[in-house]
Design a protein around this nucleic acid. Structure first.
Length: 226
DNA sequence: GGTACCTGGAA
DNA sequence: CTTCCAGGTAC
């Protein structure tokens, strides 16, 4: 799909007003938008629309936006072991490792160590949990989102079903490895561990590299409304 | 059947 | 801010 085709389709979706979700839960908004655009869900780490990555976001609240995930060969210890060692229990007694890392150690003693060429999740004991090369992350970001098509929606609940009104689409582009490396250092791009113990294995949603909506303009040089 | 990606949240 | 969390697929 081209950007122009997207503009046309988006206008139609916007004019529909509130439309019911096509999937329960947090991920419903992206699935609903893609369904109405006629795009099939995929788990390909490449852009969706003519070089632009499509992202949908609920306007309410200020939750994190996942830029991309990166897990391959970064763990310095088995993920399940990390969960058991440093995880916390959720309401159902399930052990999970759900932390947004910062430079200061968290309650589990884990922190993000940003060095010249790499960043690591470490424990105060000195143990290294996982490591990423900054250049690799910048490459990944450029591959995944040379441009970002950011779509915002109002939400409403009717009879227990969530409805979305998609009302704005913004095209953001223009970034560079140097700029991104700086953003990692300034913690405008956050590292989010998201895995839990599922018995014999760790269910890993993927270590997310994430940001807040108000930080998006720092990652791109131009933003235009479609 | 486990890993690594995708799609996204709340208090 | 941190702590905590969701439903999907390809291979």
């Amino acid at each position: 799909m081209t950007i122009e085709e997207f503009k046309t389709k988006f206008k139609e979706i916007k004019n529909k007003g509130f439309i019911p979700t096509t999937r329960k839960g947090p991920t419903g908004i992206g699935h609903t938008l893609e369904t109405h655009l006629g795009i099939f869900e995929n788990n390909d780490a490449h852009p969706d629309i003519e070089g632009a990555e499509l992202k949908a976001h609920r306007t309410k609240g200020n939750s994190l936006i996942t830029l991309f995930t990166f897990n391959n060969k970064v763990w310095k210890m088995p993920p399940l072991e990390a969960v058991k060692k440093y995880g916390s229990l959720d309401k159902d007694g399930r052990q999970g490792l759900y932390y947004t890392m910062s430079l200061k150690p968290n309650s589990a003693g884990l922190f993000l160590d940003v060095q010249k060429t790499e960043i690591s999740v470490r424990h105060i004991s000195g143990e290294v949990i996982a490591t990423w090369q900054l250049q690799t992350l910048a490459d990944r970001f450029m591959q995944k989102m040379p441009a970002l098509l950011f779509v915002s929606a109002f939400t409403e609940e009717r009879d227990g079903i969530e409805y979305f009104h998609f009302y704005r689409a913004q095209l953001m582009k223009g970034t560079s490895p140097e700029l991104l490396a700086d953003q990692f250092r300034e913690e405008n791009i956050l590292v989010d561990l998201r895995l839990h113990d599922k018995g014999t294995m760790a269910r890993n949603h993927g270590t997310g590299f994430r940001t807040y909506e108000d930080k998006l303009p720092l990652l791109f040089q131009s933003i235009i409304d479609l």
